[in-house]
Design a protein around this nucleic acid. Sequence first.
DNA 1: CGGAGACGCGCG
DNA 2: AAAGCGCGCGTCTCCG
Length: 560
Amino acid sequence: MTAGPDAAGLICPVRDDGAPDGPAQRVPDLAAAVAAREPSGDVRWVWRSGRLQYPRLLRSGVGIRRCHDVELVGSLLRARDGESLPSAAGDGTTVAPAESGAARTDRPMLPFEAGDSREPDQAAELAAVLTAHADQLARIRADADPARFGLLAAAESAGALAAAEMSAAGLPWRADVHDRLLTGLLGPRPPVTAGPALRPARLSELAAQITETLGAARPVNPDSPAQLLRALAAGGVRVPSTRSAVLRRVDHPVVPLLLEYKELARLHAANGWSWLDAWVSGGRFRPEYVPGGVVSGRWASRGGGALQIPRLLRQAVVADPGWTLVVADAAQLEPRILAALAGDRPFAQAAAAGDLYQAVAAAIGADRAQAKVALLSAMYGGTGGDGGQSLALLRRRFPAAAAFVEDAARAGEEGRVVRSVLGRTCPPPSAAWRTLTSEPGDPDQARDPGAGPAARARGRFTRNFVVQASAADWALVMLALLRTRLRAAQPATAVPSPGQPELVFFQHDEVIVHCPAAAATAVVTAVEGAAADATRLVFGGTDVSFPMTTAVVGCYADAK
DNA sequence: CGGAGACGCGCG
DNA sequence: AAAGCGCGCGTCTCCG
């Protein structure tokens, strides 16, 4: 389907191989046409971008069950096939664009991205979507593991639907609770002025005490790291930076004042009253999610910092009267993912049930905290300090798991790409990285001193990528399956369906469903079913279990 | 004046 | 205790 500037649109039936199955049809009311077709049979809508196109359907009260998102799937395929991305993240350097036909078929659609007011040529857009879709289906079929890559494409597309639906639903947010919290910690809200926000009373008080304690002649602005660093040095406190972690190790009366200031200033700047004004309305926080926004497949968000809500503010997330929140997170997801990925039998045994860190601790003869640190070091490439010894034990007891991440690290250091379990591919190294790490042609010439650190940095990235991206695969499949389970009992198109459970939040390995209190048990069952199905689809017959920790609560803060 | 980058810190 | 990975975003600061 394609949408025009008004309510009208174009629809064309498509066969399983992507070929048109009849002429395109102009419909005067696209939402109505979608709503009419959705209940009849197993419809999968093909469109350019759910992120851009679905919100409008939702505003018309129409939801869909399945889609193929040409932009998201195109991005997966381009990464797989080593083609440059149109808007590469990071340093902007990409490999040379591959001059394949597939890349060109994507190009005609770009003008519609501009969102300009010209009447778009809908027929041309529809043709471009059809061509790109058929091409993508062929490329998925040609994958070394078409079932897994097809699952990834389906989950990525479904994720875009879930994201738009969650934005539309919003996370229940009690502005009054949030405001009381701010007032209690910072003092009353300062008057709103045209200029920069005024400092609340408690922050002014702390700033004055900091200036006084340091014996500074002029007021110190703790928001300025440079100024603060100078004032600390003048007061006899020599630190490399003004980070909280650094300050915490210093014994000086100014430290507790600074730590409190930093914490409160952060709350005020990031999630204070102006955040409340900008992002919360009608009792809901409505962030915009960006599916596929992170190279690992995790979602990003735009505006409102949806994926960085401080734990303190979970108090403001309260279910509506008579409703409840089902908060579910995948316990110790990443180490379990590693266990399943590596097919490490002893490690899989440790991850078969219960507390993975405790089981690993028993296996290597360490305590739980040491086991956790050692595992995180293995996945992130940390050198470990104290964890070094536990890390060595880990290698001995779980050689397959250790080899798996070390192979990934070596691939990264050598400039190769790595893939997630479902086939999401990490970006290739930048041209700058290749130049930096290449061996000089002249053997007498010294290698760039930055070459080693750069290679190791990329090794840490690829080492982590295989785990983080595979965890994102699993979580995305779980989310898509949960969405389907929650919708199964509902009318096919009414969105929102009054009185029905709604997904309202997704944060990497955690979901929140807002539902009538009476539905909570069924939702918990749906969550567990979705996790079990995701495990089977993504990993087949693994021994590793992926337990969900679920809490049925009135307030998010009570979930853990 | 706006843009870019460093810094710092919230989340997983 | 922090680090090793991935992000978004606010403030400060410098630069053109």
